[in-house]
Amino acid sequence: MADIKVKGGKYKPAYPGQTIVAENRRKYLDPNYELRKLRSISDEDVVRLLGHRVPGEAYKSVHPPLEELGEPPCPIRELVEPTPGAKAGDRIRYIQFTDSVYFAPLAPYVRSWMAFWRYRGVDPGTLSGRAPLEMRERDLELVAKELLETEVFDPARVGVRGATVHGHSLRLDENGLMFDALRRYVFDKEKGEVVYVKDQVGVPLETPVRVGKPLPEEELKKLTTIYRVDGISTRDDPELLNWVKRIHLLRTYAGFKLNKAENM
């Protein structure tokens, strides 16, 4: 995992805002901050959930190991140490998350910013209802495990969904779970846990994967990076509001009256 993580050094995220939501955004973007582990999911279960290979199966490769490949001289190649998956020639595979608007820990933009700041060799995507993350396969498995085991995942308000992601903005079901048309997960009332019975693209799992108990809403409100009127509203964070307005003014003037933008 150390080969995949960004070394933060003295970097501190400069994201503005004086509320806990802004603080959480800064925290998750900070590669020096260790995400708090809340649950354990075995390596095999992560592989099952991803559905790209069966546990124990060798990684498929799309090119020979870099050592054998004989790369041409290149200053960028000398500067950037390849990740383990890149060295081995792994395929690029994905994990995709759906984050509920109801106080999920992350939202798509924060997820992408976080991926860029914390991990190497990532290709995140940012949409409203889903956030794909693509990496070399063995690197992906390590990152997926961290994303599933720590405070940035909640079994009820975050879904692992390769396709048919509809649900981020829907009301919650009677158990507080986010809607999933494919019903990849069920709620085990006895144990109070969420259990995945299908992998991320909806293929039934022979061995279900337990991802733990949903967090109480009050706890989610402490972890979330989403502003909401029934939580922390943007109106309560003038620093953030003013920062957005300043960016807007700078962009506007830069395209119209550049000298005005330069003096702001």
Binding site: R25, D99, V101, L106, A107, P108, Y109, V110, G125, T126, L127, S128, G129, H168, T225, I226, Y227, T234, L240, V244, H248, R251, T252, A254, G255, F256
Partner: peptide, 24 residues
């Protein structure tokens, strides 16, 4: 910034740069 999300990939791109050409 409020929701931490907006539209889909291609939806958002033009809205990041639109302010710069709105008076040009």
């Amino acid at each position: 910034e409020h929701m931490g999300r907006l539209g889909f990939y291609g939806y958002d791109a033009q809205d990041q740069m639109g302010a710069s050409n709105s008076f040009s």
